[in-house]
Design a protein around this nucleic acid. Structure first.
Length: 630
DNA sequence: ATTGAGAGCGCG
DNA sequence: AAAGCGCGCTCTCAAT
């Protein structure tokens, strides 16, 4: 059973819809102020809440202390169903783009991103659907961004990326308003999606994917609501220790100023030289005979010159200061919680992205500021070698899966297992070899050991090779649960075509070839990264359900600093691709660790049934995120 | 003033 | 050791 939630004039409509998509009762309209109470009452019926965008509705419910168990996020589901090859021959996929294709993700309320949108103060979610078009948060586009770095960006690559953007992508507020007929009813859309599932070639997998994606949206909203416990005083301590006291606006911190002077001295540069200006610094270094052709850290490290040491130190501290300095602290964690803004499904592969705050790039050197509340603790868990294990299971490569299983209490390190299986000589070779196989590496050690891996694990290697070849032909590839890759844009085909012209120059042909291989590397990686993302979604979906159930028994716990409804409950506070942080009453830590492990097993079964693949975790119970060694 | 690029680094 | 996947952020600088 579903309950469709929608804005209806001054109130909010709640419409029961059956699992087959048929209306299952009259819509009732309730006042916005009564929504939380109504939803809480209906949770007992275990309904699945269907709404346009989780962030339009759920934050307000959480603010009222109401947690929901299941949801169906129509925007996210629509995107999956439109692209999946499993639903390619359905009405929803074959029709033209609708308003649902134009929706940009709604940012979490109350954060810097939402504030930047200058929205008039309204009750969130009480507006009709088409108003969502005002959101200016950048929608993720369909390109794999394989050409973003300069060294492999051929001429015109930027233009190509723009052309790859589908014409129906959401744009900013200057975009023309959607026509009234495009203002679609969420109940109508839900019915269409349920029919699409039924007509798809694998309803089971797609249903699971949509449920996992929506559960992810719930988890992301909950993590934003709860926030990551953040000790501003510790953060300040880290910064002051590294940089000196906080400088007045416009000034460099003392340590940076110091290092800047040492850099200038070492290369005889004038005091006016700004080390933040790459062209100026590089020119001055060239004049001093340093011999650097770029300012990349790993290239500088190879050089021997008095300027190198202070320059490397400067770069490190500069990074800390600009990306995660006092400014960041003021903006993103002013009140003891870092409220990260995840963008569920924000990456083409299905991984999450984030906007503002850099939640997915939290550097290790500030993680000490992530400290549990008094009486509480963190359970930090990460999946060991997730992607190669996913590949083994995806390919049903029994020998590779066996290399990842622990025997007789032996190591659960899959790379060690690959060595033990006699495939390669060292753990390092196993690691770079597998990474190369999954990323499409063509040089160095990675390429050297690939043939040995292919001999030992022919099924796994064949799977990624086939994905690469499909991409090179311009075809879609699909993950375990049915998320399909985008097609390359029009300009891709144009370049391919022009390479076949009689008078095609060598440069045109080589550009076409390089573009072909680049897309092949993208699709090669898509199946693995995308399926790993699905495993992770199932994992956190299971975790959040288990944690809630665990909390039922802990009502004796004294309330913590965590906001309701999590004040007495262990809850997720951080997610990073293959890693989670749970904030839990200290007394529940061991129970939480057990549930997190059970959730990983459950995720493996959901994706791969009884195929014998293990997903071992490394789990740490700790007061500080920094102490969780990974 | 604002915008877009390139460079570089953070994370998985 | 520095190529091969996916991202976001912040800086400078040139163009608008």
């Amino acid at each position: 059973m579903y309950t469709v939630v929608s804005g209806e004039g001054s109130g909010i409509g709640l419409r029961p819809v059956s699992d087959s998509g048929a209306p299952a009762g009259e819509q009732r309209v309730v006042a916005a102020s009564a929504l939380a109470r109504e939803v809480a009452a209906d949770e007992a019926s275990h309904t699945r809440w269907a709404w346009d965008d989780t962030n339009s509705w759920y934050p307000a419910l959480l603010a009222d202390g109401v947690r929901v168990d299941r949801a169906h996020d129509l925007r996210l589901a629509h995107a999956v169903l439109r692209a999946s090859v499993l639903s390619a021959r359905t009405a929803l996929a074959e029709a033209g783009p609708t308003a649902w294709d134009r929706l940009a993700p709604v940012p979490p309320p109350g954060g810097p991103t939402a504030a930047a949108l200058l929205r008039p103060d309204r009750h969130p979610g009480s507006e009709p659907l088409f108003d969502l078009g005002e959101i200016t948060a950048p929608a993720r586009t369909d390109h794999p961004a394989g050409n973003r770095r300069s060294h492999d960006a051929g001429p015109g690559s930027t233009r190509e990326q723009d052309e790859r953007r589908a014409p129906d992508q959401v744009r900013g507020p200057t975009d023309r308003p959607l026509a009234p007929e495009n203002h679609l009813d969420p109940a109508v859309e839900l019915t269409a999606q349920l029919l699409t599932l039924k007509d798809s070639t694998d309803p089971g997998r797609l249903r699971l994917l949509l449920a996992a994606e929506s559960a992810g949206a719930l988890a992301a909203a909950e993590m934003h609501h709860a926030g990551l416990p953040w000790r501003g005083d510790i953060h300040d301590e880290i910064l002051t220790e590294a940089l000196g006291p906080r400088p007045r606006p416009g000034a460099r911190p003392a340590k940076l100023e110091d290092l800047a002077n040492r850099i200038r001295d070492a290369i005889d540069a004038p005091p006016t030289l700004n080390p933040d200006s790459h062209p100026d610094l590089l020119r001055a270094m060239e004049y001093a005979g340093v011999g650097a052709r770029s300012l990349r850290k790993w290239e500088l490290e190879k050089l021997d010159h008095p300027v190198i040491a202070p320059l490397l130190e400067y770069k490190g501290l500069y990074r800390l200061y600009t990306a995660n300095g006092w400014n960041w602290l003021d903006t993103w964690a002013p009140d003891g919680r870092f409220r990260m803004e995840y963008v569920v499904g924000g990456v083409v592969t299905g991984r999450w992205a984030s906007t503002g705050g850099g939640a997915l790039q939290l550097p290790h050197n500030v993680r000490r500021a992530v400290a549990a509340d008094p009486g509480w603790t963190f359970v930090v868990a990460d999946a060991a070698q997730l992607e190669p294990r996913v590949l083994a299971a995806l390919a049903r490569d029994e020998r590779m899966a066996a290399a990842g299983r622990s025997k007789d209490g032996a190591s659960t390190d899959m790379y060690a297992g690959i060595v033990a299986a006699g495939a390669v000589d060292s753990r390092e070779h196993a690691k770079v070899g597998m990474l190369g196989a999954m990323y499409g590496g063509t040089t160095g050690v990675s390429a050297q050991v690939l043939p040995r891996l292919a001999r030992a694990f022919p099924q796994a290697i064949e799977l990624v090779e086939r994905a690469a070849r499909a991409g090179e032909r311009g075809e879609k590839v699909t993950t375990r649960l049915g998320r399909s890759s985008p097609l390359p844009g029009d300009s891709w085909a144009a370049v391919q075509g022009s390479a076949f012209d009689e008078d095609a120059g060598a440069d045109v042909q080589s550009r076409a070839r390089s573009q072909t291989r680049s897309w092949g590397r993208f699709t090669r990686n898509f199946v693995v990264q995308g399926t790993a993302a699905e495993w992770a979604l199932c994992w956190i979906a299971s975790i959040r359900r288990r944690l809630w159930a665990l909390g039922e028994d802990s009502t004796g716990c004294p309330p913590g600093l965590a906001p309701a409804p999590f004040d007495r409950r262990p809850h997720l506070v951080f997610f990073l691709h293959d890693e989670v942080v749970v904030h839990a009453p200290a007394a529940l830590a061991e129970a939480v660790a057990q549930e997190v492990r059970a959730a990983a097993d459950e995720a493996g079964r959901l994706l791969f049934g009884d195929f014998p693949v293990d997903f071992p975790l490394s789990v740490a119970v700790t007061e500080s995120y920094a102490d969780a060694k990974d």
